[in-house]
């Protein structure tokens, strides 16, 4: 079970946003896509979600080209959480979460299976108590959890999220991280674009480090987040340490002055 990409090339406005990158996301693991601004993280995620077709190269879902999979089946298999969670109308939270079931609807109305999936998603992201509220009246943290529940309601095998932790305060970041963790334990393959290096070090089983449209390094945390890679990609001096509980902790020490 893998969602892999081979020699993916994407050009945006003349320059190569992704210059033929390859890699793989594994089921049951959290893969963090890291890189400085403009490295091509979001572009790669959009390709993996089937929202952008690369000019060259293929995305393979369990060995089958993603482009050959019907949109409905793809939508049932891959859940996508965009960067800025948009909510345009004041839907009630339960109706908003029910939108995650759209790829499964044969006709109008909700099946018992839909109701079960929605309830489970609300439980998983701790928003059952919000179900009768209007979505636009929620706080940022609540809204992020509700939108996550929307994706989970589709019970996807793969969950791709673009910066799901941005704009959340630390407590909510940890809540959402915990949800990702338990989804991965249940066998879901998770791909996250993350900006925060420290969070990435703590949550990811696997890291893909992008730099200027190329994969600079790919593998487990300790291997990828080496001082040399971090200096190259981000221009910072940083060190991967362990905290008192033996968990990885990344310390960013100082900016390396740009060479002239």
């Amino acid at each position: 079970m893998a969602l892999s990409f081979r020699d993916v090339l994407v050009r945006l406005g003349g320059h190569a946003a992704l210059g033929g990158v390859s890699g793989e996301l594994a089921a049951g693991k959290i893969t963090a896509i890291l890189g400085p601004n403009g490295a091509g993280k979001s572009t790669l995620l959009a390709c993996l979600a089937g929202l952008r077709r690369p000019e060259a190269g293929t995305i393979l879902l369990d060995g089958q080209p993603l482009a050959s999979i019907a949109p409905r089946i793809r939508a049932q298999t891959i859940g996508f959480l965009p960067q800025r969670g948009e909510v345009h109308w004041d839907l009630r939270v339960d109706a908003l979460i029910a939108l995650g079931r759209l790829p499964f609807h044969q006709n109008w109305g909700q099946s018992a299976e839909d109701a079960k999936a929605i309830a489970a998603a609300m439980q998983a992201s701790d928003c059952a108590h919000l179900s009768q509220r209007g979505a636009l009246g929620l706080s940022g943290g609540e809204q992020a959890r509700v939108l996550l529940a929307r994706v989970l309601a589709g019970q996807p095998k793969w969950l791709l999220a673009d910066e799901p932790l941005a704009n959340l305060d630390p407590g909510h970041q940890l809540d959402v991280l915990e949800i990702f963790r338990s989804c991965a334990q249940a066998g879901m393959g998770i791909g996250l674009v993350v900006h925060d290096l420290g969070l990435a070090a703590r949550l990811a089983d696997h890291i893909i480090l992008l730099h200027q449209g190329h994969v600079l390094a790919e593998g487990p945390c300790a291997l990828v987040l080496s001082p040399a890679n971090l200096a190259m990609a981000f221009g910072v001096e940083a060190q991967l340490n362990q905290d008192e509980n033996g968990r990885p902790r990344l310390d960013v020490l100082r900016r390396i002055p740009a060479k002239r």
């Binding site: 959009a46 929202l51 949109p71 939508a75 891959i78 909510v87 345009h88 939108l99 759209l102």
Partner: peptide, 16 residues
Amino acid sequence: DALTLGEPAARSLGVH
């Protein structure tokens, strides 16, 4: 309905 979530999310839900 799906467009309530914005275009990228709607497309990921299978909207053409």
